Simulated scan of single mutants.
Amino acid sequence: MKTDINFQQITSPTLSTENPPNFFGEIVQETLALTRRLFIQLQRRPSSLAAGIIQPVMWLVLFGALFQNAPQGLFGATTNYGQFLAAGVIVFTAFAGALNAGLPVMFDREFGFLNRLLVAPLASRFSIVFASAIFIISQSLLQAAVIVGAAAFLGAGLPDAAGLSAIALIVFLLALGVTAISLGLAFALPGHIELIAVIFVTNLPLLFASTALAPLSFMPGWLQVIATLNPLSYAIEPIRYLYLHSNWGLNDVVMHTFWGDITFGGALLVLLGFAVVALLSIQPRLRKTLA
């Protein structure tokens, strides 16, 4: 009888379903812990964040002063080159920060910390990637907010609340896509030297092959084609439109390309598609590395 009672207790549904594991909650907990680790590193070495804010503000001041006497109409409807430049600086700062997203992961690989995480009893190893993405996107949004404030102080103006929300969405989509690519490279390339080389080779060419510093009409034909294929242009032009127009809508045309007009909503769809394609493209590599 005693044996039967013990067997019933062991096989009781109440005992077998007691305290079921919360898979989603564990992933959230792991992601928050790893994200907190990255912010602690930033707190201990704030120079990278300070440099990421000081440099674009210097761009606003110096380039704005350099072209302040440019002829009217050279840069479109704006009468202030600082107002024209603000959108480009916001987007390029977010792009540059997201492009560096893979460096902390690469250093964790080289110092062996990533191996410790991979053998740890994590609910999902993708929390490593989620934490890096959250950290970089948060940093990009913070930098964008500082640049928007600095541009307003320098006379570029300030979009309304809806416009600021649209800027945050654009920065988020661009940073998400570029962060995904950078993290994929961090797991694919052999070391940080190769990753830094890719960053240096990619950074400035994409800046000059976009509408960050000059409008499409100012460029030669071949460069206009490249700029209209550059995802940075699809982030810059909607933000620039927000600075120039207090009343805006998703159907408003923000860029004229050789194949047609791009609306505000169309530019957002391009950025969304870019982020989705980037996330899907790195999935095989991440699954192979994190397996």
Results as ranks from 00 to 15, higher is better:
residue 47 S to E: 15
residue 74 L to P: 00
residue 70 A to E: 02
residue 79 T to F: 01
residue 52 G to I: 08
residue 60 L to F: 10
residue 73 G to E: 03
residue 59 W to M: 14
residue 53 I to M: 11
residue 46 P to N: 13
residue 71 P to G: 05
residue 45 R to H: 12
residue 68 Q to N: 05
residue 60 L to R: 05
residue 79 T to N: 15
residue 71 P to R: 11
residue 43 Q to D: 04
residue 73 G to P: 09
residue 51 A to T: 11
residue 58 M to V: 13
residue 59 W to Q: 14
residue 49 L to T: 09
residue 72 Q to A: 15
residue 60 L to N: 10
residue 62 L to M: 09
residue 59 W to H: 14
residue 49 L to Y: 07
residue 70 A to W: 08
residue 60 L to Q: 02
residue 71 P to Y: 04
residue 46 P to T: 11
residue 81 Y to D: 03
residue 51 A to W: 10
residue 57 V to G: 12
residue 79 T to K: 08
residue 52 G to Y: 12
residue 57 V to R: 06
residue 76 G to S: 03
residue 52 G to P: 03
residue 76 G to H: 00
residue 47 S to C: 04
residue 63 F to H: 05
residue 58 M to A: 11
residue 45 R to A: 14
residue 46 P to Y: 11
residue 48 S to T: 07
residue 74 L to D: 13
residue 73 G to V: 02
residue 60 L to M: 04
residue 72 Q to G: 05
residue 45 R to P: 10
residue 77 A to E: 15
residue 62 L to S: 00
residue 60 L to P: 00
residue 79 T to D: 13
residue 66 L to P: 05
residue 62 L to R: 00
residue 59 W to C: 09
residue 64 G to I: 00
residue 77 A to L: 12
residue 77 A to R: 14
residue 61 V to P: 09
residue 66 L to Q: 08
residue 51 A to C: 03
residue 55 Q to F: 04
residue 75 F to C: 01
residue 53 I to F: 01
residue 76 G to D: 02
residue 62 L to A: 09
residue 48 S to L: 06
residue 70 A to F: 08
residue 61 V to Y: 08
residue 66 L to M: 13
residue 76 G to W: 00
residue 46 P to V: 06
residue 69 N to L: 12
residue 50 A to F: 14
residue 69 N to M: 02
residue 54 I to T: 12
residue 63 F to S: 00
residue 66 L to K: 15
residue 78 T to M: 12
residue 70 A to N: 07
residue 81 Y to G: 01
residue 57 V to E: 06
residue 81 Y to T: 07
residue 51 A to L: 07
residue 66 L to C: 07
residue 49 L to E: 02
residue 77 A to M: 09
residue 43 Q to A: 08
residue 53 I to E: 05
residue 55 Q to E: 13
